[in-house]
Design a protein around this nucleic acid. Structure first.
Length: 408
DNA sequence: CACTCGTGGAT
DNA sequence: TATCCAAGAGT
């Protein structure tokens, strides 16, 4: 296999940039030598010392705090995480508190942040730490990697930042920055190419300050070396970055496109009881938004094109609800609202219908709740803090409120 | 390995 | 509006 960056010759830049010596070929990538790397680390960490962002989780090297921040930051923006970080720490001050928490409370604290398995996995990991490490966060890379929800990136980040272990933390920022440094023509979307960036990172990382090195990559990736509209000429690494020296920043990283989201169709039933409460159910049997609460959602993907008239649409909903819930609500003929919600891989189209339960149906539902047969509940707005709702349900509440308001 | 799993902001 | 995306991990 030829060099992954063979279309340029790093040797041609020796003396014509900050590169002063040649190094080995790493996983097919020709890199600079030890003299250049020393100069590179000096420039980079001097920049980090002067310009690094001040963030709540950088106030200490407490592995618990570093861990929380790294999990929250997965596929999530810094600005979003800041508010959640403080609330999470207040709710679960120690690993023990997290290990012993109720799942409902976990989800409530994580509500709105997305990728809810992250917090369930964190609790599993907290329980691992309690049982396997006597409640003390492990300080060895191999042990950190064993924790649920901690993959190669997060293990490297925690190991380097909290414990000073000289390992890289390879995330999207690192792959983008390294791709531009050496003009690496390897698709960062392909899992198989990950080892290339791991190896480059291991070669570059400062053994004395691995945590600062990895965080400097983050700061560079969010400032001058962004995915779009990068400002490579302002980067502290401009004289080390081959893509900058050749004016090819926008060609890197190489990244294949993602699949388009598929449409999914639902009818939502907003069912009110005599107290003015609305029926909700817990998604215990779904993987998506698992154990969070929504109003009943009826899958209409197989039939939504056939349902044309208002009677056909409400008729189908009544039949499904009768079969699945054993009730016969009286619905308004016309839908009262529409909600579209976009996930990474799905687009939910939800048509909202409104109805009132009969007293007999209400008894039936209350009996099911009392029996613990099903995870249903009646809820009024002042009780919303007792349930974890995904954003799509918050949109449904909003649409219902709009209808309710204009109706009066 | 390809797919699943959320959300809100930017262009 | 459509697309991309932001400090990925589990299956």
């Amino acid at each position: 296999m030829t060099a992954v960056n063979q279309d340029i010759d790093i040797a041609a830049f020796v003396g014509k940039s900050a590169i002063v010596d040649l190094g080995p070929e790493i996983e097919g990538v020709k890199v600079w030598g030890p003299e250049t790397n020393k100069a590179f680390l000096k420039v980079f960490l001097d920049w980090y010392d002067a310009e690094s962002r001040r963030l709540p989780w950088r106030e200490s090297k407490d592995p618990y705090r570093i861990w929380i921040s790294e999990i929250m930051l997965q596929q999530t923006r810094v600005q979003t995480v800041i508010g959640y970080f403080a609330r999470f720490l207040a709710a679960f001050p120690t690993i023990k508190d997290l290990a012993e928490a109720e799942e409902d409370q976990l989800l409530k604290v994580w509500e709105g942040l997305g990728y809810y398995s992250r917090v369930r996995n964190m609790q599993t990991a907290a329980q691992q730490i309690m049982t396997d490490y006597d409640g003390v966060f492990p300080d060895q890379l191999a042990d950190i990697k064993k924790l649920k929800g901690i993959g190669p990136y997060t293990a490297g980040a925690i190991a380097s930042i909290a414990f000073g272990i000289p390992v890289p933390a390879i995330d999207g920022n690192a792959m983008r920055v390294f791709s531009r440094l050496f003009m690496i023509n390897a698709d960062i979307q392909k899992p198989a190419n990950r080892k290339i960036f791991e190896a480059i990172g291991q070669y570059l990382v400062d053994p004395e300050r691995p945590g600062d090195f990895n965080q400097a990559i983050m700061d560079l990736g969010s400032s001058y070396e962004t995915p779009k509209q990068a400002m490579p000429e302002l980067s502290p690494l401009r004289d080390f970055t081959l893509a900058t020296l050749t004016g090819t920043t926008d060609d890197y990283p190489v990244k294949s496109k993602k699949a388009k989201a598929k449409p999914v169709y639902y009818q939502a039933l907003i069912l009110k009881n005599a107290k003015g409460q609305v029926l909700i159910e817990k998604r215990t049997q779904h993987k998506l938004l698992k154990n969070m609460w929504t109003v009943p959602l009826i899958d209409v993907n197989e039939v939504h094109e056939a349902l044309q008239t208002p009677d056909e649409m409400t008729g189908y909903l009544v039949a499904e609800v009768s079969e699945n819930y054993g009730i016969q609500p009286v619905l308004m003929k016309k839908e009262i609202g529409y909600v579209k919600h976009i996930f990474t891989h799905l687009i939910w189209h939800i048509h909202l219908y409104y109805g009132q339960v009969t007293s007999q149906d209400e008894k039936h539902i209350n009996q099911m709740i009392a029996d613990g047969q099903a995870d249903y509940a009646w809820v009024a707005p002042h009780q919303f803090e007792q349930f974890a709702f995904p954003t799509v349900q918050m949109k449904i509440w909003s649409a219902y409120q709009d209808y309710d308001k204009q109706d009066k």
